[in-house]
């Protein structure tokens, strides 16, 4: 018996292939008088190969949700399943992109991208080729021997995306990766992310507080409510892929953004 309906007036259909499934997840921090409920009753199912954004205002528990999905912290109750197995700790099958590009400043771009290969003691040569290919795809050819300090913020974040993808994970978790970038760079990065994602088609969970970004990238947008964090509403984004910058001016896109904004304010 799998109940995947959300706390949303419209019950969701049971997806045939749920890659990640949140079942009644709650999370409380602290104890006693400092006890606070960060997430409450999250039921959510993310289908294989989908790009899902989690949208919500600051402090509503987005990062907490993602950290639980990554197995970095346990839920207080409920469970998160990946391929029907409970996630208890991080695994190789998962790529994680942090809000800041957490690069090691003493390593070159290429060495940073290959860090997961080193940790898992995999074949360097084969992955080197792959890393260089990623760099090309992300417009960073020729920067492989640069140090992070020599790159702009956007370029650093591209490097950390390449690092998250180097082992071809089946799930890519991203925590507001473009939050610190200006609007123009952010839109450019959105297109690049989609380009590189379309090659792998991994299941992607993307956190953002930017409505346009969520709508542009995703197949589905999960809107979280605050205090405590809960699923407020889910939007399907029926725009075709591959998506181009033109889609941002599409009527459907504009209407969706308006609906999401209204739902967010409600």
């Amino acid at each position: 018996m799998r109940d995947v309906s959300v706390s949303n007036p419209k019950p969701q259909q049971v997806p045939a292939t749920a890659k990640i499934e949140f079942r009644d997840v709650t999370k409380t921090f602290g104890a006693g008088t400092k006890r606070m409920l960060a997430l409450s009753g999250i039921n959510l199912s993310i289908e294989e190969g989908q790009f899902v954004s989690i949208l919500g205002e600051s402090g509503c528990g987005k990062t907490t949700l993602l950290r639980i999905a990554a197995g970095l912290i346990p839920p207080s109750s409920g469970s998160v399943l990946m391929d029907d197995v409970a996630i208890t700790r991080p695994g190789r099958d998962m790529g994680f992109v942090f809000q800041q590009s957490v690069l090691l400043e003493w390593r070159t771009v290429l060495e940073n991208i290959l860090l997961p290969v080193e940790i898992f003691k995999l074949d360097m040569k084969e992955h080197r080729e792959k890393a260089l290919e990623f760099l090309k795809m992300l417009g960073l050819s020729g920067f492989e021997n640069h140090y992070p300090i020599q790159l702009s913020g956007g370029m650093q974040q591209r490097v950390s995306i390449a690092r998250a993808l180097i082992l071809s994970p089946s799930v890519l978790l991203m925590d507001e990766p473009f939050g610190a970038l200006d609007a123009i760079t952010r839109e450019q990065m959105n297109s690049e992310l989609l380009r590189i994602w379309s090659h792998s088609r991994t299941t992607a969970v993307f956190i953002t507080h930017d409505i346009g970004e969520a709508a542009f990238l995703s197949d589905r947008v999960v809107l979280l409510g605050s205090r405590p964090g809960c699923v407020k509403q889910i939007f399907d984004i029926p725009l075709p892929r591959p998506r181009t910058a033109e889609h941002r001016y599409d009527n459907r896109f504009v209407c969706l953004c308006r609906d999401m904004k209204q739902a967010m304010m409600a």
Binding site: A70, L72, P90, F96, F98, Q100, V102, I119
Partner: peptide
């Protein structure tokens, strides 16, 4: 954050 990165990578 770098420590967390290593945790994610199961180092």
């Amino acid at each position: 954050y770098q420590v967390e990165l290593f945790r994610v990578l199961t180092a």
